[in-house]
């Protein structure tokens, strides 16, 4: 994950606290979604950024997660996501994010 984004996440987790903060990601592939989710939940696996060794434990979801979909009004969803929901594999992305943020973290 971008080093600047890592710093922003660290700063926001300190000012808002874990329960108030949700991270929503838009990665196109399960593999990159998993790496991003793992970084947010358990720290930077590449040990390059501010989240190296930092277990933020934040709630992280993919934007195509069905739970997120239910909360977004249809007109906004159609305009902003639209056919991307068909182009990307929402179920696989949702699962990859859940696994990487909750499992034992052995993602690529």
């Amino acid at each position: 994950m971008d080093l600047d984004s890592q710093e922003q996440l660290l700063r926001l987790s300190e000012t808002h606290g874990r329960d108030d903060l949700v991270v929503v990601i838009g990665a196109p592939d399960p593999e990159s979604a998993a790496v991003t989710a793992e970084t947010i939940a358990k720290g930077d696996p590449s040990y390059a950024g501010a989240l190296a060794g930092v277990q933020l434990g934040l709630e992280v979801r993919h934007v195509l997660d069905e739970e997120i979909r239910q909360e977004v009004p249809d007109d906004i969803w159609d305009a902003q996501i639209g056919v991307m929901a068909d182009v990307l594999d929402g179920a696989a992305l949702t699962e990859a994010v859940a696994k990487a943020s909750q499992g034992d973290g052995a993602s690529g």
């Binding site: 790496v35 056919v83 182009v87």
Partner: peptide, 19 residues
Amino acid sequence: GSGNVPERNYRTLAALASK
């Protein structure tokens, strides 16, 4: 982990063409 960029573009384009 960056996927197949052109294929994703073509699928987006085809989905819009179908729409």
